[in-house]
Design a protein around this nucleic acid. Structure first.
Lengths: 246, 246
DNA sequence: GTTGCATCTAACGTTACGTCAGCTTTTATA
DNA sequence: TATAAAAGCTGACGTAACGTTAGATGCAAC
């Protein structure tokens, strides 16, 4: 018979955990003294080992409680399910890591890294799937593939240019610059995505889009005022570039 | 200006979350009416996007709160750190998944799958690293490698035999069987790890080991009584097999 | 007998909200 | 314009698995 402290040492659990498991009915001590002290024997160790193992496999205590009573068949099928859950988690983590890699690559190539802009880019990297799904309502699938193949291959360059030009244009909004320089910026901005591809997209998009959703999935780096100003300047300088999406 | 409900729809967050962020000081509405109603404007959307993005990258709200005020340099280095954390998580998940695969392979080959035994095996699969570290205190490294190379290559067979024999021996403890059969079981049990390797280990282990720790890392599938009985029977039948570890 | 350590229960804190309950304000309709 | 419905508000509890006090008691040693 071990007191709770001894048993904790023996099993590697904390006293608090043991009390918690007792309260939950997951592992009851084999004897409780009149004063309410808990005493455990060797048979409890087996249960502890099961609990620890299942915890390691990422089961919750509730799930463990059920599994402790079940037969091997249940455990086996439960393991398969658990594996699926873990694989989903891993896939998710992989996506985030890849995104971080791309983002740091973009940042590494850029002269200016403005946090807000940078996060916006990360956001668009992360929501690629949702973007595609949304666009699938309006655009033919092969065009979507074409778009994302292009942006995917040139993702670092595109985003580096996008970040830098956006930054400079925002600066120009604050402190006006020479027309010639502004014109160049706007031209470069509208050329990030090559014209032919851009035209094809614009043509396909002639129907209406759900602006609510679009604003969520493709947030603009500009404020309303900046955007208005931008269009105005583009018109004034004899330019017109589509700039609503991507 | 949007009411909290409108803003929630626009951003995809819940009303509750917005109130929570307000309370936390993460995102305050741009205007609060006398009645206490919250109103948001377009500039808030930018902050929401940052929050959502960082949440997606697995930051806590506290961390996000700090990052919202920091510059790009902080965000970049924080991203590297975040990546490391995620990689650790992924490594952990990978280990568990591999373990589940091995475990199901073992179970698939076995006639009997007793849950307790099965979990014990999973436990030993999961704690391989700790086991090695512990053994390194007593055994030369090359011997440890030799051991785990052997058990690693034959892991499915070994564990399947281990599980089956342990099960049968436990049965024999409950309902005595013929001496001949028992002798065979014990012999097979002691031969799961080949004799020469076993002898080498036993020789190297002649010094003392920390039993407390050993019991935690290499829990026996047998109760004390069963173990005593087992040794007794082995002696009686003219056998002696080391069986303390693995 | 008392000191000191172990143990007990009860309770709050943690994360990021979901979900009431009960009340007030705003909005839409008759 | 009166009223009802919808939306908003605060405050509180619940979640998972304990960590961490606080204050009271038990037990063993000197």
């Amino acid at each position: 018979m071990y007191s709770i402290g001894e048993f904790a040492k023996k099993t590697g659990l904390t006293v608090r955990s043991l009390r918690f498991y007792d309260q939950k009915g997951l592992l009851n001590p084999s004897y409780i003294s009149e004063a309410g002290h808990r005493y455990y024997d060797d048979r409890c160790i087996e249960t502890v080992q099961k609990i620890v193992t299942l915890k390691y496999l990422d089961y919750t205590l509730d799930e463990i409680e059920e599994l402790l009573q079940d037969d091997s068949q249940t455990i086996l099928s439960s393991l398969m399910f658990q594996k699926e859950q873990l694989e989903k988690k891993r896939t998710q983590i992989d996506r985030i890591i890849r995104c971080i890699d791309t983002a740091t690559a973009i940042a590494g190539q850029s002269k200016v890294v403005e946090p807000t802009l940078f996060l916006l880019i990360i956001h668009s990297l992360l929501t690629e799937n949702e973007q595609k799904e949304y666009l699938a309502q309006f655009l033919p699938l092969d065009l979507i593939e074409k778009m994302y193949d292009y942006t995917g291959e040139n993702i670092i360059d595109i985003n580096q240019q996008y970040m830098e030009l956006t930054y400079l244009i925002k600066q120009a909004y604050q402190k006006p610059i020479a027309d010639q320089a502004l014109k160049s910026l706007i031209e470069q901005f509208s050329m990030i995505i090559p014209k032919p591809l851009m035209l094809e997209i614009a043509e396909a998009l002639e129907g209406k889009v759900d602006m609510e959703m679009a604003e969520l999935l493709f947030p603009s780096p500009f404020t309303k005022e900046e955007e208005e100003w931008f269009l105005e300047q583009a018109k004034r300088l004899g330019l017109y570039g589509g700039l609503d999406d991507e």
